[in-house]
């Protein structure tokens, strides 16, 4: 089962390596990982998407908590969180597909952020399903390159991790 882990860590050098090393060393899998500073510059926030049964997730959560630099780990298992990802997609464009392409972008509420004679760079934000969906639609037009940020997540409502 897929899990989205939201992790607060001390913003110190080597922390990312400790987390990544824990996953590889114990045979756990990282599907995506994103990390950046929080409002407190001493603390960073990581979002890790991983897969495993309950026992594996219990181990992952405990092992993460055991790392000295990790402040808090939350496993978003229920629907009470929002998650988003940004993808930049470079697509081939020509006179025959331009209007269809623009309408797809419109439907997905994407943006064209760079234009050249024969290509667009499209920015699209959404959860993983939405990103997958637009990529499926754009594929026949000729995707040259895709870059994705990986998921970031946050709980709904006024609850915070701190």
């Amino acid at each position: 089962m897929r899990h989205t882990l939201s992790i607060l860590v001390e913003n110190k050098s080597g922390v990312l390596s400790r987390v990544a090393g824990l996953f590889s060393g114990r045979g756990f899998n990282i599907e995506s990982l994103s990390v950046a500073e929080t409002i407190d510059p001493m603390v960073s926030h990581m979002t890790i998407v991983t897969r495993g049964n309950d026992q594996i997730l219990e181990q992952i959560t405990k092992q993460l908590n055991k790392l000295i630099n990790i402040i808090k780990v939350v496993d978003f298992i229920n629907g009470d969180f929002v998650d988003r990802e940004i993808a930049l997609v470079k697509v081939s464009v020509n006179d025959s597909n331009r209007s269809e392409l623009l309408s797809i972008i419109d439907i997905f509420r994407g943006k064209v952020v760079d234009i050249s004679l024969d290509s667009y760079v499209i920015e699209i934000t959404g959860d993983e399903d939405k990103i997958k969906a637009i990529i499926t639609l754009l594929k026949p037009m000729g995707i040259k390159e895709v870059t994705r940020t990986g998921t970031v997540a946050m709980s709904r409502g006024s609850k915070t991790k701190n």
């Binding site: 050098s13 080597g14 090393g21 824990l22 000295i68």
Partner: peptide, 14 residues
């Protein structure tokens, strides 16, 4: 050595 011993220490520092 901090990189090398990261998985075999409880914690390490530079």
């Amino acid at each position: 050595i901090v990189g090398i011993t990261r998985p075999c220490t409880k914690h390490n520092y530079l």
